[in-house]
């Protein structure tokens, strides 16, 4: 089993490496592009040239990628800082440290500092979203699956199917319309300013609700269909015909097996929630890294984009790995050779 885990770990590390290379290749596609993006549209040809030279932007792509990786882990100094470039960028940590993503061009600050301001907010948002999605969809999915064909099942199924047809931005607009615009119970934006007349808690309600509604509808459907599939398995028939009480059949025979598939889906859902976070943060003006990404994209802040995408990639790959791990742990057919 340890071998299976190590094997998967290696695979995912490899995927992350390739993906980060693609990310780097696409964002730094043309060398001239990078320098003029840094210097802005009014830079002189000679300025672009000298910056390109200084940063080695004319080197082959793979060399630049290795340098970028080296900078990330603190082996290679970041040449963009300091007075020499005339950009006024400086980093109190020095030019070389672990986790050095470089500078945000948009904010003129080290990216680590920019992230420090925003990261926590997004974590709060996702933790709440996942923390509510998992129990809600497990309960609803199991209820619907166990009572397949009943009125309860039909209500849950129709609701979840309808909800998955709604784009999150539509859900958000509807919620704002009802709870902020019409009823005035909750704020329509969530900038999390301390001086705001709405408490931070109330500002979190709608953003979290949008994420929970969209993702739990989907997860509920997965859980339901997994429960339905498991119920149709012959071993459940064996358990029932053994005369076991329905509750025992449900808990010991159905649920244990029915949870194997959804666990993977739930972990992948974390990945999905991160995408949803961009939308939600944009709509509610929520100061997290999702909105930061959008701002960076519109500004053309390539270093910030690189940093944020790398974070997204790591989260995606880690959850995929955890999903596989959960699978191995839950299914004795794989665990015990």
């Amino acid at each position: 089993m340890a071998r299976i885990v190590l094997n998967r770990l290696g695979q995912f590390a490899f995927i992350l490496l390739i993906a980060s290379f693609l990310l780097f290749a696409v964002t730094e596609f043309s060398p001239g592009n990078v320098a003029s993006k840094i210097l802005g549209p009014y830079a002189l040809e000679s300025q672009v040239r000298s910056l390109s030279d200084r940063l080695g932007l004319d080197d082959p792509l793979f060399t630049r990628y290795l340098r970028w990786l080296g900078m990330l882990v603190g082996l290679v100094p970041n040449e963009l800082g300091g007075p020499a470039t005339g950009l006024g960028l400086s980093d109190p940590r020095g030019a070389q440290y672990f986790g050095n993503f470089g500078f945000s061009l948009m904010q003129g600050r080290p990216i680590v500092d920019v992230l420090a301001d925003r990261f926590g907010h997004t974590v709060t948002l996702t933790v709440w979203a996942i923390g509510l999605t998992v129990p809600i969809s497990l309960v609803l999915g199991v209820l619907a699956g166990m009572t397949e064909g009943s009125a309860l099942d039909r209500i849950i199924s129709v609701t979840t199917v309808s909800l998955t047809s709604l784009p999150e931005f539509v859900v958000a607009v509807l919620l704002i319309f009802v709870f902020a615009a019409s009823l005035g119970w909750l704020p329509g934006t969530s900038p999390l300013d301390p001086g705001d007349r709405w408490s931070v808690g109330s500002q979190l309600v709608l953003p979290v609700a949008v994420l929970v509604i969209a993702s739990s509808a989907y997860v509920t459907r997965i859980v339901r269909s997994s429960v339905v599939d498991t119920l149709a398995q012959p071993f459940v028939r064996t358990a029932r015909l053994k005369g076991l009480a329905p509750m025992r059949v449900a808990m010991l025979h159905v649920l244990r097996n029915a949870m194997i598939a959804p666990v993977t889906v739930i972990l992948l859902q974390i990945n999905w929630i991160l995408t949803g976070v961009v939308v939600v943060e944009a709509i509610f003006a929520y100061p997290g890294i999702g909105r930061l990404m959008l701002e960076a994209a519109l500004f053309g802040d390539i270093y910030l984009i690189q940093a944020l995408t790398l974070i997204a990639l790591s989260v995606a790959v880690t959850t995929q790995f955890l999903g596989d791990l959960a699978y191995v742990l839950l299914d004795p057919r794989i665990r015990v050779a």
Binding site: Q11, I15, L16, I18, A19, L22, L23, V26, T27, F29, N33, N271, W272, L274, T275, V278, V279, M293, L294, A296, A297, G300, I302, I305, L308, T309, A312, L313, A316, V317, Q320
Partner: peptide
């Protein structure tokens, strides 16, 4: 697997930043 590591929205954001 590599492509699936990129969330759709993020991938698009990278593409428009460059192109």
């Amino acid at each position: 697997d590599v492509m699936l590591a990129f969330p759709a929205l993020v991938l698009y954001i990278i593409l428009i930043t460059t192109f």
